[in-house]
Design a protein around this nucleic acid. Structure first.
Lengths: 217, 217
DNA sequence: GGCGCAATAATTGGCGCCATTACGCTACGC
DNA sequence: GCGTAGCGTAATGGCGCCAATTATTGCGCC
């Protein structure tokens, strides 16, 4: 056999990453021929991946026209943030009683990793370490289904604000948010945990001036 | 043209309905040839529909083996119910301040329709009128994204308990649940609304003896 | 010179075929 | 008589081609 055989790729994730990195702008049409060439995949797989992204509302599908990057209005973005707050707060609260000293230490290391990525790291490493912190925290929650839904909704809403991310100020604020959450978790106060998670999520959209005031609602 | 041309069918929903009606049991393999014959669709569309259901975790996909109906364990069912409570309570609470007298009248008519379906109706009409009541209520919530997620998660979790539905006792309890929710909405008390919605959702799984005690947690 | 229409070109999307893979049966050996 | 290995069969799934639909460009007309 000439090739080692590419075992399996998740093309939908690759396309989503391409959108996230700015290769395609909101509202732009995604031509299947371009994707099949740039990703080196067959048209069949491209279509399956696009259908998957359409189901996740990452892209919009217009019959006989094609797929284009979804462009949510401000109201919808606000609404999605509220849903994220609801789900992720619940996940964090579920994790709270299950956190022992070792778990808190682990979370601190994850927070450190994000700090380092903010200081000197690529956008992708910043994103990865950030997600790692949250996933680790939610991983302690007993309700597995809740965590899955929370992560799914987060990733669904994550596409658009991330384009605006490279603001150093927002990154520093995000790092501080992790510390706030850790402090709240150590205090053991559920209300404080919920508040810190809420502020952190809403703050992630705060680099957009129009969304800034959402934090104070 | 010989045929009026079937414009477009949502095959995934039809397959889900077939599973719901009991044509396929949990864990059973879904052969593509059978579906393509029974639904009168092409293999291509069947595969797309199955992929969609796999993404919604309605069916499980095993490479080179096929698709089979997912069979969640009790713990996962419990977890999904908790997520539903979280989302649907929030949606109901969001709708609460927006309900005027006309809206409450409308909801009462929807509740009446469900009562009639319970008294003399098919399982599908019972299911439809029940969903209609909830969708109407949530439709008043200002957060559109929240409602969409809530409905999506509900439909995702709805498959399995519904097989157990035809219990008349559970249906009557469900009808009473609607009345409780309406009374709570009329009282305007958020805590009471949340409690009634919570009890109604948890009660929907109460015809399973093993799940009965979940209501009192 | 501008607008509308039609022909052309490009892109999407439906569908069938064939290779790959897993399962079940049978035959052989111990 | 039982276990195992090999083969036959049937199902999955990957891929390419062709029809349907739409955007675009050029031409004719007002």
């Amino acid at each position: 056999m000439t090739r080692a055989a590419p075992p399996k790729r998740h093309l939908a994730a690759e396309i989503a990453a391409a959108i996230r990195s700015g290769d395609y702008r909101a509202g732009e049409w995604l031509r299947q021929v371009d994707l099949e060439e740039s990703l080196g995949a067959t048209r069949f797989d491209i279509r399956a991946a696009l259908a998957e992204l359409a189901l996740r509302q990452t892209v919009e599908h217009v019959p006989n026209r094609g797929f284009r990057v979804a462009q949510p209005d401000r109201q919808r973005l606000r609404d999605m943030l509220a849903v994220r707050v609801l789900l992720e707060c619940e996940a964090a609260l579920g994790a709270l009683p299950r956190l022992d000293e070792a778990a808190l230490r682990l979370l601190e290391r994850k927070a450190d990793a994000f700090d380092h990525a903010v200081a000197d790291g690529t956008t992708t490493s910043q994103s990865a370490t950030n997600l790692d912190f949250h996933d680790t925290l939610y991983g302690f929650a007993p309700n597995r289904a809740l965590v899955e839904v929370a992560v799914e909704i987060r990733d669904r809403a994550r596409l658009w604000p991330l384009v605006l991310w490279p603001s150093v100020r927002a990154l520093r604020r995000s790092a501080e948010g992790h510390r706030d959450i850790l402090a709240a978790l150590r205090s053991g106060d559920p209300a404080r945990v919920a508040q810190s998670v809420r502020a952190h999520i809403l703050g992630s959209a705060a680099n957009d001036p129009d969304l800034e005031k959402l934090v104070q609602d």
